[in-house]
Design a protein around this nucleic acid. Structure first.
Lengths: 142, 142
DNA sequence: CCATTTTAGTTATCATGATAACTTAATGAG
DNA sequence: CTCATTAAGTTATCATGATAACTAAAATGG
C-alpha cells in the first residue's frame, strides 16, 4: 500500500529527479492516484470485513456470478485466469469460503486434478447484499 | 488489493446499479483507477523487495530524509503523523530496519516514553540508490 | 503532590498477500 | 505402452497489513 500523507510537491519531485530527466508532473499525478487508490482500497476492505468478506472473496463471488449460465461453476484455474492473484492464496481463500458456506466445491468430472466451484444461495445473497454500498463507496470517493 | 483482470463494462455496472441510482461512468473510472494502482503497487513492491525494502520502509526513509535539518531525527509518533499506517506495524518495521542498519534508534532525551529515529549512512545511501528507478517505474506506468 | 487520565510504544494474534516445494493427474514423445 | 513433462492444487513459510491488550512515562487536576 501507499500511505504517505503529504505527497511531495512537483517542485520536490523535480529536485529528486533532476539528474534522471523524468517527468515530474506525471510522477506527481501518479503519486496522487496511488494515494487515492490506497485509501479507497482500505475503505473497501473495512466495508467487506464488516460483511465477513474481503476484496478477494468478493471478486471470487463476482466472477462466478458473472458466468452466463445459471448456477454454473468455475474451476480454480478459471478463477486464476480472471483474477491477478497467486494460486496458493486462491486455494486458501476458496477453502475458507467453503467453510463459510459462500461456495460449494466438488470434484471435477472431466479432470481429476481439478475442482468445480459453485456459488451457494448464501453466496449469491451475500453478493446482492453487498453490492449497493460497494458502488456507493466507489462513487462517494474522489 | 484490487485484482480483477476484466473490469465490468459500463453497461454491466449500469445493470448492477440500476436500482440504486448511482453513476456508472464514475464507477467505471474508479474501478480502472484502482486496478491501475494495484498493479503499479505490486510492481513497486517487487522493486523494493529486490533492494531489501518495502513501500513502508521506503516511505520511512523518505520522511526522515525530508526533514530540513541535516541528520535530524523523527520520533515514531512523528512518522505516524506523516504516514497512514498503524502503530504496531510501524513499531515492528522500525525494529527490522534497525536490525538491517538502515536506521538508528535512540532513547529520546525529552520524553522517556519516546524514541529518536535517525537515518544511518547506509539508509541514506539506500534511498539514493533506489530513487531513480522508483521514479522511472512511476513514469513508465500508465 | 498524589491519583487519574492520556500518550508512546510493544506484544500477541490474526488476515491476506507472496514464493518454493510438494502431490497427483493428464499429456505426449518415443 | 511407458516414462518424462506439464498442469492443477495444496502445504509450508514468510512479509506486511490490522486490532486488542499491555507497560511505562508524562500530563493533569483536585
Amino acid at each position: 500500500m501507499f500511505f504517505l500523507k503529504e505527497l511531495p510537491t512537483e517542485e520536490m519531485v523535480r529536485n529528486y529527479t533532476r539528474n534522471y530527466s523524468s517527468d515530474p508532473a506525471r510522477i506527481s499525478e501518479t503519486l496522487h492516484m496511488m494515494r487515492r487508490a490506497s485509501l479507497l482500497i482500505r475503505k473497501l476492505e473495512a466495508y467487506f470485513a464488516s460483511h465477513n468478506l474481503s476484496q478477494l472473496r468478493f471478486l471470487i463471488l463476482i466472477v462466478i456470478d458473472r458466468e452466463p449460465d445459471e448456477h454454473s461453476a468455475l474451476t480454480p484455474q478459471d478463477i486464476l485466469d480472471r483474477l491477478d492473484v497467486s494460486k496458493p492464496v486462491l486455494s486458501r481463500t476458496l477453502q475458507t469460503m467453503e467453510r463459510d458456506a459462500l461456495i460449494r466445491i466438488t470434484a471435477n468430472k472431466k479432470d481429476g486434478r481439478s475442482k468445480s466451484v459453485f456459488l451457494t444461495d448464501q453466496g449469491r445473497a451475500k453478493l446482492t447484499a453487498v453490492l449497493p454500498d460497494y458502488y456507493a463507496l466507489l462513487v462517494e470517493e474522489l
